[in-house]
């Protein structure tokens, strides 16, 4: 292969027939918390959990705790919905900052024995969706997506692909983030936020009253970029369709308010 990655004229692709996917937004929740509020939130979830891993839950990562709160609020909108075969896709941004910062310091001072065994199980990209799948009893795939700032829109590409790959009954999509990165030597506290959206299949007979719908399909170059925090308020306040691009990819999102056609 010749070295021609940069500066090469890329042949205009044949416009593909992209398979569109459509869901109903079954419920959604948004949560914010100051860093100081995380410990009580974490204890609250661990104390109320009756399944295996209760001890492990006491070490859940900060963003996981806020995500569980967003999921809890979302479920209040659809208390009778079961999630047995649902998938969980979550994009925490740079998870594990405080834990990792503390453990780097401990390693330098005391060596390997001082390192918490919870660092990787709780603070990796897969940790948040894994914990949510446990809480929900969701046996579809659970995946951490993106993880770096600027990768939030990858959740949509993954949702579209997972839906094509295994057709789960529904998908939980979760975004979390820190207001400020917590690097060694920097600030030690920040504000956290989480958006959780549950997408269910749209059987013909389903009552769509009062439900937003969401479609992913072929791109529309006129769309604006996706932003999870904008979408959170959109679902609360807006009543006209809204569409967004999925990064620089060949996919586009379209949110459709209740009572309107895609």
């Amino acid at each position: 292969m010749a070295r021609q990655a940069r500066g090469t004229t890329i042949r205009k692709p044949v416009v593909p027939e992209i398979q569109a996917r459509e869901w109903v937004i079954a419920c959604h929740g948004y949560a914010e918390a100051e860093h100081e509020a995380i410990a009580p939130l974490r204890r609250q979830f661990a104390d109320s959990w009756t399944g295996p891993g209760k001890g492990s839950m006491r070490h859940m990562e900060d963003q996981t705790a806020v995500a569980l709160e967003a999921v809890r609020l979302a479920r209040l909108m659809a208390p009778n919905l079961a999630f047995d075969d649902w998938a969980v896709l979550a994009c925490p941004l740079l998870p594990g900052r405080t834990t990792f910062r503390d453990n780097l310091k401990r390693y330098a001072e005391d060596g390997a024995w001082a390192i918490s065994p919870q660092v990787i199980p709780q603070c990796s990209l897969h940790s948040l969706p894994g914990q949510v799948s446990i809480i929900l009893g969701a046996h579809g795939p659970n995946l951490g997506i993106g993880g770096w700032p600027g990768t939030e829109d990858q959740v949509w590409s993954a949702a579209w692909a997972i839906d094509l790959a295994v057709e789960p009954q529904g998908l939980w999509l979760i975004w979390t983030g820190l207001e400020t990165d917590l690097h060694p030597g920097g600030t030690s506290s920040t504000r956290l936020r989480a958006l959780a959206v549950a997408l269910s299949r749209t059987p013909d007979s389903q009552d769509l009253d009062g439900k937003w719908r969401l479609a992913i399909g072929a791109p529309n170059p006129a769309d604006s970029p996706w932003c999870p925090w904008k979408a959170g308020s959109l679902l609360q306040d807006q009543c006209s369709p809204w569409s967004a691009t999925v990064g620089a990819s060949s996919l586009s999102l379209r949110f459709v308010p209740p009572g309107q056609n895609t």
Partner: peptide
């Protein structure tokens, strides 16, 4: 923050109009 590896690969190799996904299931 440094760009994700998918962003790096996509910008270098692809000039992409196809999706990039970085995932983890451990």
């Amino acid at each position: 923050p440094f760009p994700s590896y998918t962003d790096l690969l996509a910008s270098h190799w692809l000039g992409t109009m196809a999706p990039s996904i970085q995932l983890s299931s451990a």
